[in-house]
Every structure is written in structure tokens, then in C-alpha cells.
């Protein structure tokens, strides 16, 4: 059975003056999928993700996120998505607990529900003993895991991750991906940009961008077959060249 489409973009184009950051992007993301958005720096990944989140509006094209139109129903989209940017997105001068409370408040989560979810989360990330510590004092790997957990705290339909694992060692990155799998198993669609090719292998489907265009879009296995490559790194190099 064909799965439900949760993000669809048709001829999405974004121009900054004469520079075309996104050139006629057309793709669909299915519900519950881990969708990888790959490309070198400056390929237009961040621009695309910002448009899908409502941070920026496209120059032309049709885009629907979580069943809502990106031009007219931004407010509805916002309630249904989570976002984690490449910059660290929690407040360093607030404690772990205060950060959680803040986001719960912003997303209108009730006190009771917050308490249950909060203790689950702290237990899962083994942060119970440090919950009253300032975020600024935590190691980067912990911060990023926490930032991800906070981004999906309100059970969004889709979570957008913009290079979430930048600057983190491979072991921590692997652990971070365990969290992503868990979220996907719980039915959250994951839209992730990255330039680490090993991460591309973890995705259900990947699209590879180059100079504002989508050059390839398929499962990692099929892409490797098509480009006769042993890993995604080779696929990427063949396409980018």
C-alpha cells in the first residue's frame, strides 16, 4: 500500500537576487520516512529546509507540509513540525529542566503531560542527576541529544534537522541516530540535511543536491546500484562531479 505523502514540493524555486539557491525542486516525502537531504556546503540544503519550516518563503512553486499550504497556512504548519538548526538551539543560561519547560510552554503542552514526558526524557537520556545544571556546562554530544529530544517534545508530525551532527565525533553521531530511528518508529517523519555520507546510509531515501538542483533521489541501495558504487561517498562524488 502506498504510504501517505506528508511533504510535497513542486517546482520549488528560491532566488536571492540573481543567485538561484533552489532551482525547480520537486520531491515527495512519505509519512514515517527518514528522508536525507544531501549536498556539499552551499548546495542549497539549508535554504530548502528553511522554506519547508516557514522561516523563508519560496520565490515560486507549490509546497505542502503536513497537508497545509506553505503560503497560507504557516501557523498550522508550525504546530505540526519540530526544528533543530545547525546552530545549537537550546538556551545555555537555562537549566535542562527550564529549557524543557520553556518549549513545553511555547507549544502549549499541559503541566501534567509535561511532567510525564519530562521524566521519561530525562530517564532515557540519563540526565536525571544533572537536570538542574545549566545547559552551557554540558558536553556537546549531550546538548545535541537533548536539543533533538526537545525538538520532538510536542510530538510533531515532522521534524526538520539541519545538519544536526555538525562537529560531533562518530560514536556520538551513531548514538544520535539511534534517537532518530526511535522517533521514526514512533511515526515521526524525519527530514534531515547532512554532508556526512555515512549518515546517508541510515536514511530510507536520500536526495542529492548540487548547485541548487536535485541530481538524484532514491534509496541508498538503488543509488549505489545505479552509479555502480560501493558506498554513498562514491555516489556523491560521481554526482557532484
Amino acid at each position: 500500500m502506498e504510504k501517505e505523502t506528508i511533504i510535497s514540493a513542486r517546482n520549488l524555486t528560491k532566488k536571492f537576487g540573481h543567485f538561484t539557491a533552489n532551482d525547480n525542486l520537486t520531491f515527495e516525502v512519505k509519512k514515517g520516512e527518514i528522508f536525507g537531504f544531501l549536498g556539499a556546503n552551499g548546495a542549497g540544503k539549508t535554504t530548502a529546509i528553511r522554506i519547508l519550516c516557514g522561516l523563508s518563503s519560496p520565490t515560486s512553486g507549490e509546497v505542502e507540509v503536513a497537508g497545509f499550504d506553505i503560503y497560507r497556512e504557516t501557523e498550522k504548519i508550525k504546530k505540526n513540525i519540530g526544528y533543530m538548526s545547525q546552530k545549537f538551539s537550546l538556551y545555555e543560561d537555562l537549566t535542562i529542566l527550564e529549557n524543557i519547560k520553556l518549549y513545553a510552554g511555547i507549544y502549549g503542552i499541559g503541566r501534567k503531560q509535561r511532567k510525564t514526558k519530562e521524566s521519561e526524557l530525562l530517564q532515557k537520556l540519563e540526565l536525571e542527576n544533572v537536570k538542574n545544571k545549566l545547559i552551557g556546562d554540558l558536553p556537546l554530544g549531550w546538548k545535541q541529544k537533548l536539543a533533538f529530544s526537545v525538538a520532538i517534545f510536542h510530538d510533531p508530525k515532522i521534524v526538520f534537522l539541519d545538519e544536526p551532527t555538525g562537529g560531533v565525533d562518530p560514536v556520538t553521531r551513531r548514538k544520535f541516530w539511534d534517537l532518530i530511528y526511535e522517533a521514526a518508529n514512533n511515526g515521526i517523519t524525519v527530514f534531515v540535511t547532512t554532508h556526512y555520507m555515512d549518515e546517508a546510509e541510515y536514511c530510507d531515501r536520500v536526495s542529492i543536491m548540487n548547485a541548487g538542483k536535485i541530481e538524484a533521489l532514491d534509496t541508498p541501495a538503488k543509488l549505489k546500484e545505479k552509479y555502480t558504487a560501493t558506498n554513498m561517498d562514491e555516489v556523491f562524488l560521481k554526482i557532484a562531479r
Binding site: 516557514g54 501557523e75 508550525k78 538551539s89
Partner: peptide, 14 residues
């Protein structure tokens, strides 16, 4: 500067 503004703008906060 810190990037937290993006998070706020993505949230349902008007």
C-alpha cells in the same frame, strides 16, 4: 546570533 531566534520563529509563537 545564537540561532535560538529561528527556533522561536518556527514555533507557534507569533
Amino acid at each position: 546570533e545564537l540561532g535560538t531566534m529561528e527556533i522561536l520563529l518556527v514555533s507557534p509563537l507569533r
